[in-house]
Design a protein around this nucleic acid. Sequence first.
DNA 1: TCTGGGGTCCTAGGACCC
DNA 2: TCTGGGGTCCTAGGACCC
Length: 428
Amino acid sequence: MAKAFFLIDCNNFYVSCERVFDPALEGRPVIVMSNNDGCVIARSNEVKEIGVRMGAPVFECRGTIKKHRISVFSSNYTLYADMSRRVMDTLERFSPEVEVYSIDEAFLLIDGSAYNGLTEYGRLIKNTVKRWTGVPVSVGIGSTKTLAKAAAQYAKKHNEHNGVFDISGHRQQDEYMDEIEVGDVWGVGRRHAKMLNENGISTALQLRDAPDEWVRKRMSVAGLHTVWELRGTPCVSLEQAPPPKKCIISSRSFGVPAETLADLKEAVAVHASRAAEKMRSQRSIASCISVFIKTNKFSDDPQYSNSATSRLSVPSSHTPELISHVHNGLERIYRAGYRYKKAGVMLTDIVPEGEVQLNLLAPCNSYNRNRALMRAVDGINARWGSAALRYAAAGVKQRWQMRRSKLSNRYTTQWSELPVARASFPAL
DNA sequence: TCTGGGGTCCTAGGACCC
DNA sequence: TCTGGGGTCCTAGGACCC
């Protein structure tokens, strides 16, 4: 056997992170909410069994939460990001070829001939991650990424495999694939699943055997690649270094609706500085920046949403400059009398820092000074926390801040919030 | 009262040019 | 009554992912 793809998928990742630092949550129903405590975005197995939907609005689940005494947490991304890093660091030990696919998933490419049994190796990975980080994972193994994903999916649903499953290593591969719903296949979303079902294709096996022409017509080339991958022909390769982002967005819903221009100006200044910071961290600059505002589409209030785009004469990643652009844009689109729910900033036309076309008329030393300033700000914030140095335009009170009423501690990244170990020793 | 945030790619259709 | 053909580029919208 040549190379095999492993998909390592953290089980109910955010819930598992909370459980690591509060073991009393083990075996109990737990939910983690989205930003602003709005939706359910992570559920323990117990909660899945109760039937709480992924993405369900939390206020609709109040009854169920109370009835089943479900523990509820606000998203603690500082904690999850750090736990993710620990998991990924652990995985690096098992293969030189690792792709961090998302905060809770990674693909590994493993040389099959080097190991006795791939499934054995998968178990070793699973056990090590659990022991070193406390996070439980599932491992799917297959000859393509899509098959590895399907295998992990299968492992999660069928306990007898103990969370590790090699789908390509089985002679009865067809039978397994016939048990996987087509909507659970990586690359098949809700719309396509519905369309496929209406055309008599309901399992991964049936999709694999569908005619190329038909798939191409109904699901475009992306769908065709999925089908080929199901047949064992790799179309999606491992990407070890993520390509730089082509577009960077920062946006948030408000904890309470914002109505004044002053409040919105604060919010978009925060977004501009967050987006610019992300962009500088990948050493890029943008020549286009947009700002958008919108009202709450779920409410009966009058609706309004709009955006304004500014094209920069010279690409930039200088926060004060970007803030002034979004403030200009905001003033153009702001209408009084609406209750705004969300605002954000989007950077596009992003190019690597080194490829700037300097404007002949712009003084070069101001460019260098600006860069040095931003580097200093980023350095301080990296060291002392993102709130250490802020822009006055971002305001101080920030009345529109998001709700996070059930936040756990930043156990691993903040000295004052470290977990406390208690032990009692017998008297000597 | 309360409904997340951040990305990518593909395609169709319009604008524009010769 | 008659209204080319072909190419490129851009954008909006739709689909997908986590």
